[in-house]
Simulated scan of single mutants.
Amino acid sequence: MHKTHINMNVQSPEDLIQHQCLVFHHSLSYVKSMALKCAVELGIPNAIHRHGGSATLSDIVAGTGLPVSRLPYVQRLMNFLSICGVFTESNPPAAVTDGKKGEAVVYKTPMSRLLIDDGNKLSSLSCLVQFVVNPLLVNTFFDMHTWLKDEQASSTKSFFEMTHGCGRFEMAKSNADDNAMFNNAMVAASQITMEVILREAGCDIFGGLSSLVDVGGGHGAASAAISAAFPHVKCSVLDLPHVVDKAPADGTVQFIAGDMFEFIPKADAVLLKWVLHCWDDQDCVKILRLCREAIVPAREAVGKVIIIDIVMGAGSSQDTLSKETRALTDLYMMHLNGVERDERGWEKVIREAGFCDYKIVLVTALYSVIEAYP
């Protein structure tokens, strides 16, 4: 029988075991995403919230309508999610009350508060979790290695297209459930991001404008937030017909059906939020050139393109979580041939599109605001 020998002289037994643990940890990391999705779909954050912010395992089982026989499995799920920091968990009391052994109490955390929807999914990141961790997207990444090996395929199509036979946005157009899931996720993420941006830098970015068009703005969550904070700014959203058709018609934001590669309505400013990272440099430059034409000569004194996106390496010091999340996002964008750019990459596409100057301000742990001036 063939025997495999590991050269123990390369590293100490302690290091060897530690690195073996790392391999296990990274190989099983997908289970963390699935556990988070499971908790969201069971409504566990909601159940804890409705119970006043803390609940025993029995309370959680009852509050989610699960069979009592599932309690031991719920205990294992909550133990893991508490170790990960999604929730916090107290040790069960040592005393026995009324003949029953005490139970651990699970508490909500600042993170789990973001997963509470309780009747309004669009105010919660629960729909973002369900969008990112869904079979359509997860299955795509099983073909990443095949796509990387196939130079001909990788030069003409994304590995999403190689897997599913159509592009990412074509899928959303033909699949109503996918389209709804995507737009709901973007609304929820936009609300939190825009709340921070408007609070920290809103006046500097939007204060001098009278009109703004949000390109690829989905259901208008960002534009609605801007309009509420700056009522004098006339906001409109440009997106594809199948997106605009499902947008809320509340009169706050004007919706325009169209293709960003064909035309962009005139306005003082064009907003591109999480749009340009979906495209390679060539397509990114095309979009930016049309944006530049839309703001010149309409209001040359204040005209600008406002980009809200990740800037890789932004900030003087990056904590490990932010750095890894940015890198994960960059890897995630590969599935549709997108890319997260560093400042040099952003400068390249901005200059090639004909803009004279730009400014970058880091406003959240992940996102920066880039203003490009014609």
Rank of each mutant, 00 (worst) to 15 (best):
I197T: 01
S210W: 00
E347M: 13
N9H: 10
T109N: 03
V96G: 03
V302K: 08
H49G: 02
R76V: 08
E343N: 02
S227Q: 01
S154N: 15
A188C: 13
K234F: 04
A267W: 02
L128G: 01
M312D: 14
H5K: 10
L36N: 06
N337C: 10
L71S: 08
S123N: 14
A269G: 12
I60S: 06
G102I: 00
W279C: 01
D98Y: 08
I307H: 10
V237G: 11
I192Y: 10
D214Y: 04
E195A: 12
E340N: 10
D283Y: 09
A188F: 07
T4H: 10
E352D: 14
G313E: 07
P265A: 05
I360F: 04
K234Y: 03
C278L: 10
F87L: 11
L148P: 05
T325M: 15
I44P: 04
G52I: 02
T325W: 14
L288Y: 05
C278T: 14
H19F: 15
K32H: 15
H335T: 12
R299Q: 13
G52N: 05
L114C: 10
D59I: 06
L240M: 12
G63K: 09
A247F: 08
S123K: 13
D259P: 05
S124E: 07
V129L: 10
P241S: 06
V31R: 13
L57F: 08
A229N: 02
H25E: 15
G207I: 07
E103N: 02
Q20R: 06
I264L: 06
I17L: 14
N46Y: 00
R292S: 12
A294L: 06
V369A: 01
D98W: 02
V138L: 14
I307D: 01
S236D: 02
P110G: 08
S190M: 08
L331G: 01
G251C: 03
L125P: 01
H19R: 15
D204L: 06
L288M: 15
L209K: 05
A39V: 07
L28G: 12
N183F: 05
Y367M: 04
T56E: 01
S69M: 00
K304R: 15
G303L: 09
C278E: 14
D259T: 07
G338Y: 04
R50L: 09
M78L: 13
H51M: 07
S124M: 10
A176R: 10
N120G: 02
D177T: 13
V349K: 13
E161C: 12
A247E: 03
Y73V: 05
K32M: 13
A301D: 15
D259C: 03
L42C: 10
N179E: 07
S82R: 11
G258K: 03
